[in-house]
Every structure is written in C-alpha cells, then in structure tokens.
Design a protein around this nucleic acid. Structure first.
Lengths: 198, 198
DNA sequence: CGGTGCTATTGAGCGATGCTCAATAAGACT
DNA sequence: AGTCTTATTGAGCATCGCTCAATAGCACCG
C-alpha cells in the first residue's frame, strides 16, 4: 500500500484537457455550490495534479469563469434554439427556458444566482444575461428599446429565474400556467416600462 | 517595533461584543462580497483575536447568519414601517423599499443576491423573503393565497430587487416611473397567477 | 482588604486550500 | 540517437477556518 505504482505519465492535447476540466467543473456545480468546490477535487476527478490545473487556468477564478461561460452558452442554446440572429417565438423561448431549468436547475442556480456585484462571477453571468435580453428584444420585435425597457426585461429575467426555480422545486401549480404567467408578465412589464417613456 | 506593548486586556459585556461584531460584519458587507471577508479581518477591526470571535459564534456561518438576519430586519422595517401586523399602503411599501436600496444597495446586494440554494445563507435570506411576501399579501388584502400566488409574489421580489438595484446603479429613467412599474407589475403578476387558479 | 470562581480573552498550532517554483519526462522533429 | 518543447509533477509557502489548553479581568464573598 505504501508504494504507489509509478503510473506512466501521459501527455494529452491541451485543448482536450481544457475541455475535460471545464466539463468536470460543470458536473460538480450540479452537486454542490461553487465555493465548496476545491481545486484539489477537480484535479483528483481529472486524475491530474493540482499544479497542472494551474498550468491551464492561472487562477481558480479564471477556471470558473470558463465554466460559467460554457454553462451560459448552453442555456442560451436551450432557450433560443433558433440561433443568434433569427428571432424565436416567445412561446418557444419560455418553454425552452423552463425546460432547461427543469433539467438543470441545480446547475443553473449554482451558476447565476450565487453572484453579487463586485463578485468576479457577476460580470460573467451578466454577459449571459445581456445576451438573453438582446434575444428577448428580438423575439418581442423591439428595435430601439428605451433604457427603462432594457432594465425591465433584465429584471423580468430575475423574476423568471426565481419563478421557474421555485416551480421546479415545489411545483406550485400547472406547468402551462407558469408559462402563461411568464409570457403575460413579460408583455405587461415591457408595456409598463415603455409606456412610461411617453 | 519588534516588541509589542502588552496592552492591558479589557473585558466587555458579551452582549455588547456581539452587537459590535455584527455591526462590523454589516459594515464590511458594504465593501466586499461575503466570501472575501475573513474572520481575521473582522477580528482585527474589532481589535480582538480570531479565537474570541469563535467564542461568540461557533462558526463563521453562524456569525454571518446573525449578520444577515440583522440586515433583513432593517430592510423589513424600511419597507414596512407600519409594523408586523398592520397593513401598509402599497405606495409606501414600494417607496420605502426603493429608498432602502438607494441608501444601502451595496449592503443589500452583498446579502441577498449572493446566495444559492444549498448555500447556508440561502435559508436565512429566505426567512426574510417569506416575511416580505406575507407583508405584501397583507397590504394587497389577499387572505388565502393560492400557492401559485405566493410563488408569483416571491418571484416578483426578485424582479423588484433587480430593477431597484439596476436603477440605483444606472438610473435608467425617472424614479416615479420605477415605482409605477413596481406597483403595476405586482398587481398584474398577482392577477395573472390568481386568475390561473380558476 | 485578600482570596476565590467564573469566563472573557489569548497564543500556539492543525488541516485544508489556493497558488508558486524549480525540476522531470513524454513525445515530436531532426 | 540527440535535442527541444512543454505537459506534468512534487515540494513547499501563506492564508483561512477552527481547536485547545492556558491566562487574566472582574465580580462576589469573607
């Protein structure tokens, strides 16, 4: 037991290593909150030494920034399957979003709710949010939103997050009703914020 | 410099010490996110040793649980000055809430947005949210809310948080318009969620 | 005023964690 | 076979949360 098998080193493609490590980060986020994930655990899971992780990501923050970005891309694809430029139907968007959270709510909460301004994760999460607001503006057919409208949609995203997460956890009502509430509130909020600018 | 003055020890009232430490925690949360606050820093600010902090709070988590509870009480008082049982006017509530965030948005974000489910802070923050939902139900005159209505109001709180924080930071529009948006969206969301149960 | 007990307070130290640095060795290319 | 790049590692450091045994204010009692 005391003698460890020398275990022949294997050199891997750096790109593959990065992908592997980010994948492990995503998977771990589904099991525990971010601040409970240690570099040691990730390295152990990957079968490498701590030091190698720092070779690819100069800092733990840099590592998790990549992880969060990757998760953000996944969510955007789930909610806006039509792609970056072509607008999706609002029904599809709300449904895709809710479905994503249903399947991945552990991951999602670990990512985007566990951030505060000043926090290093906040800026990364904000990138994804900004893209979601842009996509929502696109599906709503709004061309030149007033700042207040952008702010309202951004805030509505928080509303949607909380509502979907709560529903995924406690199921307070029918799924279709949640979707109806999402769509109705978004339209109402935009209307209120936009009407304000007159 | 190498010799430290023995510096006569001073015994303080435990209750006062606790208050002092919690106060320091609240103040520090206005400057940096929670996970960047070390026990050493708090102890140093108070002029005591790390060990003494652990004498009053068995764990860092216990310490910050107290801090978060204290902040929650402050916020509830700001938003619902009428008190626990008598209902306030919705106009007063939204205004009090927004004013609180205007004055204290660094603190507020540090507290309630930096939590994820599974996180030990989440349960504490949730206590305050539950109380706010109850108060809001009271001011809205809703007696027996359907689960969906409670969920909707809880989610609206996230909406309000995000909107107010964004407004405090970037001022996208007039203050009165924010208040109107808050009131209007709340009424609409409740209506949508309630109508769903028919 | 002196002794006694309670406990607020402390220093030394431990394990874990994020991170650094110099050294090793796998594999590609002559 | 020899050389060069760089993926990979072990040893070690500073900080952080936390424990434990010891010290010393201060109140109370005689």
């Amino acid at each position: 037991m005391g003698t460890t098998t020398p275990q022949r080193r294997q050199r891997h493609d750096p790109v593959e290593r990065r992908k592997q490590l980010i994948g492990i980060g995503l998977q771990m986020l589904t099991e525990r909150p971010l601040h409970e994930i240690t570099v040691d655990a990730v390295a152990a899971q990957a079968g490498i030494s701590r030091t190698l992780l720092f070779h690819y990501f100069p800092t733990k923050q840099d590592f998790y920034a990549e992880v969060v970005r990757a998760a953000g891309r996944r969510m955007l694809r789930a909610a806006f399957p039509a792609g970056r430029d072509s607008p999706s139907e609002l029904d599809d968007v709300t449904d895709g979003y809710l479905s994503f959270i249903e399947r991945r709510h552990e991951l999602y909460t670990g990512l985007f709710r566990g951030t505060a301004p000043g926090d290093w994760l906040h800026d990364i999460a904000q990138e994804t949010r900004t893209q979601m607001v842009d996509q929502l503006l696109l599906t709503l057919g709004i061309q030149r939103p007033a700042p207040m409208v952008r702010a309202a949609i951004g805030a509505w995203l928080s509303f949607a997050e909380e509502l979907c997460l709560d529903w995924a956890a406690h199921r307070p009502g029918n799924r279709d009703r949640v979707l109806a509430l999402l769509r109705g509130s978004l339209r109402n909020v935009v209307e209120l914020a936009d009407g304000d600018s007159n």
